[in-house]
Design a protein around this nucleic acid. Structure first.
Lengths: 256, 256
DNA sequence: GATGTATGTATTGTGAACAAATATACGGCA
DNA sequence: TGCCGTATATTTGTTCACAATACATACATC
């Protein structure tokens, strides 16, 4: 606290010489069990958009403290996987119809580019990884809904990984999650997320280094997904109300 | 909250009927003055990669408490703008050379797509906005370094905005920030971030709806930026060290 | 009977103190 | 002088308790 008058006669560096960080294991919050738990619950559709994520309940469920939960929720909110409303809590994010369309549009852009890059730099290891995944997807139990959901998302992530660009890979992961939220929000009952037959075709085209064909197949595949969702009926009415309230809120905040 | 599992048999409405959130003003943390302050300080290069961001100092600087600072730092860490190391603190993120290249590659993909979409949906309002920005960039004081930096980044964000895809816009904003970190880390002394003459050309091509030309100009512009940075000499040696430390850390964590 | 108000309860947000870990400074020793 | 172990000091991480807010129920009034 109080500098005990230690007459530093040689104050060559009064500033503390904080070593700069050397990329030491940041132990990302991505590994956090709470984050992982919520994420998998969402991708497995066990948590629906709009569901309340109470801090106390989560703390009890995961056997940890509220602080830990708050950190995890804040992180998920920054990734737009949960929505935090002041003094009301955290909810599973529910994208708007426009946002859902934007997500698919972004995926068309990023994943076609990823396919192209993946073909360019495809090597032996990449071929093996791709084949291994296609095998798993071909022989997996189609009745195990949760496994199916995980596998189909993994295919798209794998393609991004093969593209060899970590930034693109992060973006793909994020878009994959947001896609599952978009689908969960606007899906028609009973339809699968992904047409399961498209992946082998795309994979084969990548292995054959047919760039134009693979890109076209990927774009078509994403468009097909997008066409499975429909705007919610009666959503307009809600939108109208919220538009009014938002306007009122904005005016109140402005001080009028 | 020990909540010792009290057998509640059937309280008619024990479950609170939490209204689902209806897109009420989430008041994003993006508006937080601490986040904004650090962000602008970084894009203006007043905070260099590797700089320590002490919690107490920031709290004093912003006149707030550590809690707010910690929230802001956690958010910035999730966006890879700061790097948090357990028990050591937060530092301005310093991308690796590979990550810097990946950032530019991602920008090539996303921004060329944005140019294309912007041309497709260019309307009167968009034209006006673009022209207004080009005017400001043309007549701004070139000696005001901080204003220059802000304006050049704004051009790229504006193009993404004109593309009309909010998800793409978020990604562009994020990439813009990470680009300035990449440049700050690997720049050659004395070079500007952006060749200032490229923007009017690209803008004119967009206004002329010359899609192929605008895409080519944008790609070229980004490649030019990328070629201004060089890997740091002696970086390999550091990488070697960190590899060692990471290995040791991993072993320690594994319990050996 | 419906609407508006008041009270009680549950949940989130915040502040301050405490504990742990790390970095720095000091002193001994070769 | 240079190196190393110990002690101090700073900084981060966590816990606890309390304050503020919003929600739900009950009540009063028209």
């Amino acid at each position: 606290m109080k500098r005990t008058r230690t007459l530093k006669r040689k104050p060559k560096r009064s500033e503390p010489k904080h070593r700069e960080p050397e990329a030491v294991d940041p132990r990302s919050i991505d590994d956090d069990p709470v984050v992982q738990g919520i994420l998998t619950a969402i991708s497995q559709k066990r948590l629906k958009p709009g569901a309340k994520l109470g801090e106390d309940k989560l703390a009890a469920a995961f056997g940890t403290t509220r602080i830990h939960i708050r950190q995890a929720l804040a992180y998920l909110a920054s990734r737009k996987v949960v929505m935090q409303i002041p003094n009301r809590g955290a909810f599973v994010y529910r994208p708007s119809w426009e946002e859902a369309q934007d997500i698919f549009a972004a995926r068309r852009i990023i994943e076609t580019a990823a396919v192209s890059a993946a073909i360019d730099r495809l090597d032996k290891a990449g071929r093996a990884e791709l084949k291994a995944h296609m095998d798993r997807e071909a022989r997996h139990d189609r009745n195990d809904r949760w496994a199916s959901l995980s596998l189909t998302a993994e295919f798209h992530v794998l393609v991004a990984k093969l593209a060899g660009n970590r930034v693109l890979l992060e973006m793909s992961r994020e878009l994959m999650l947001r896609t599952s939220l978009a689908i969960a929000t606007f899906e028609q009952p009973g339809e699968p997320d992904c047409s399961p037959d498209a992946h082998p075709d795309i994979g084969a085209l990548i292995l054959a280094r047919d760039k134009a064909g693979a890109i076209h197949a990927m774009r078509h595949h994403i468009e097909e997904m997008e066409q499975r969702i429909r705007p919610k009926e009666g959503e307009d009415e809600v939108d109208e109300l919220t538009a009014i309230f938002q306007e009122i809120g904005a005016r109140a905040r402005a001080g009028g």
